[in-house]
């Protein structure tokens, strides 16, 4: 079709966690600019399968920018060249005919490669298991309107809560720090009245687990904020630090 593009892909292929892995070059011919980036990969995979080659594995699910499953480091940027979207929302019209596109998995010690472009992000689950909750059981809670919350505070908590746990912040960071992710989760609950009773215990537990998972330290570079598909703000990291230090120096009696 006219207007379609011929592209060259350099894709990271790695059979499993133990494999060394390498870049493999593929031709992606006749790609419509209307396709999403993942649909382009679908097309390439269909052609690979027809030629009895193993398709390129990558994580994806909702394909509407909310589940956080898709990743991909495209031409050196998490989720590709555009800001504030995920890879599944990226369309091929953002590329031009003849372009060479390099596709890598998230690179971080704490996110080991499973196969090709799919990585293991279960460290994020474990950090949230360590304290990312309010300890209430089902039932026996007050009426929802008995807890008035200022709209400004509620909106700010919501802004933190929009994090989709994709891991782009880690991939963007030269230290592979998970601070933006962890701080967004801590902030959401720290801002709300319901989160106060466990506020300092939560900050300590989640930061401790983050360190245990092997993520790097935050050095205030801010790449995470720029690459975050949900535009989570660096302010969250300040909130996390404040709660963490408060916990360490002043709130020991509340923690144990």
């Amino acid at each position: 079709m006219s207007g379609n593009m011929n592209l060259t892909l350099k894709v990271w292929r790695q059979k499993n966690a133990a494999d060394k892995g390498q870049f493999v070059t593929y031709k992606a011919a006749d790609i419509s600019p209307e396709m999403s980036f993942l649909e382009m990969l679908d097309v390439v995979n269909e052609r690979l399968v027809k030629g009895t080659q193993d398709p390129i594995h990558f994580d994806h699910d909702c394909r509407e920018g909310i589940c956080g499953a898709c990743s991909l480091y495209i031409n050196g940027r998490p989720h590709g060249p555009k800001q504030a979207i995920t890879t599944c929302q990226l369309h091929m019209r953002s590329f031009h005919d003849g372009e060479i596109i390099t596709i890598e998995p998230w690179r971080a010690t704490a996110f080991p490669v499973i196969k090709d472009l799919a990585v293991d992000r279960s460290a994020f689950d474990r950090i949230q298991q360590a304290g990312g909750f309010i300890s209430v059981n089902t039932g026996g809670v007050p009426d929802a309107n008995e807890i008035p919350i200022s709209k400004v505070v509620s909106d700010e908590a919501f802004n933190s809560a929009t994090c989709i746990s994709c891991g782009a912040c880690v991939a963007a960071c030269k230290n592979a720090s998970a601070s933006l992710f962890v701080s967004a989760k801590i902030s959401q609950l720290a801002l709300l009245p319901q989160g106060q009773p466990e506020r300092y215990r939560r900050a300590q537990a989640m930061v401790a687990q983050m360190d245990k998972e092997g993520f790097g330290n935050c050095t205030n570079t801010g790449a995470c904020e720029i690459e975050c598909p949900k535009e989570i703000s660096l302010t969250n990291i300040n909130r996390m630090r404040r709660d963490f230090y408060n916990a360490k120096f002043f709130k020991e009696e509340e923690i144990n």
């Binding site: 309010i134 709209k151 909106d155 319901q194 989160g195």
Partner: peptide, 22 residues
Amino acid sequence: VNIIDQCVAQGVPFAREYGGLL
């Protein structure tokens, strides 16, 4: 009606009015 109570208790940030109610 119980669902909304439960979710708010968990910290789900539903939209609110300026008066602080849902």
